[in-house]
């Protein structure tokens, strides 16, 4: 798996792990994409979800299973995951636009309205994006969640943005 060699997952690997939302679910609106494919002892995502949409169970090394029917895409799990491995993807954000929400623990935080370079799982710049929302309530415990609007065709690839002052991503 490329995650074991290069450190990032491919969509194929995610689909093979059985965690990836269906195409139909993406068309219904925002949904959590849990990118956690390795059995590690961890389960805060399970209690983070108010809708019972994430199940880990016992032992706590089980991979989280998301119930895409129960998931509302609310994003409460995003800041709770210690591995920063949960994203909210909304392919219905607007005309030709998708939105991706991700945890962002770097300074300085971007501002709403900023034009940014959106990067994929490998850190490669894939398109321009606009920061549309930043949530950092106390309950997120210093893990702000940033939402960036990108062309809808890139919403499944985008997983972050270039940091301010970053000396260029991988190309």
């Amino acid at each position: 798996m490329s995650v074991e060699n290069e450190g990032y997952l491919t969509i194929e690997e995610l689909k093979a792990a059985g965690q990836y939302p269906s195409g139909a679910r993406f068309q219904e609106g925002p949904v959590a994409v849990i990118e956690c494919v390795q059995e590690i002892p961890c389960n805060p995502c399970e209690t983070a979800c108010r809708f019972g949409a994430i199940r880990v169970g016992e032992p706590i090394t089980n991979l989280p299973k998301a119930d895409e029917g129960k998931c509302t895409g609310c994003g409460l799990c995003v800041a709770r995951c210690p591995g920063l491995a949960i994203f909210i993807v909304d392919k219905t954000y607007g005309e030709g636009l998708g939105a991706v929400s991700f945890p962002y623990e770097y300074f300085p935080l971007p501002s709403e309205g900023d034009e940014v370079t959106a990067v994929d799982r490998a850190g490669r710049g894939v398109c321009a994006g606009t920061v549309v929302k930043i949530l950092a309530p106390e309950s997120f415990d210093r893990t702000p969640v940033v939402t960036v609007a990108v062309p809808v065709g890139k919403a499944e690839d985008v997983r972050g943005i270039e940091r301010a002052g970053q000396a260029g991503g991988q190309s």
Binding site: V3, G7, Y8, L9, Q38, G83, A85, R159, G168, Q170
Partner: peptide, 16 residues
């Protein structure tokens, strides 16, 4: 292969 947790590796991979 990467020795540590994949989620930690993914965090720095997407940071470039």
């Amino acid at each position: 292969k990467i020795g540590g947790y994949a989620v930690h590796a993914s965090k720095i991979a997407r940071a470039g």
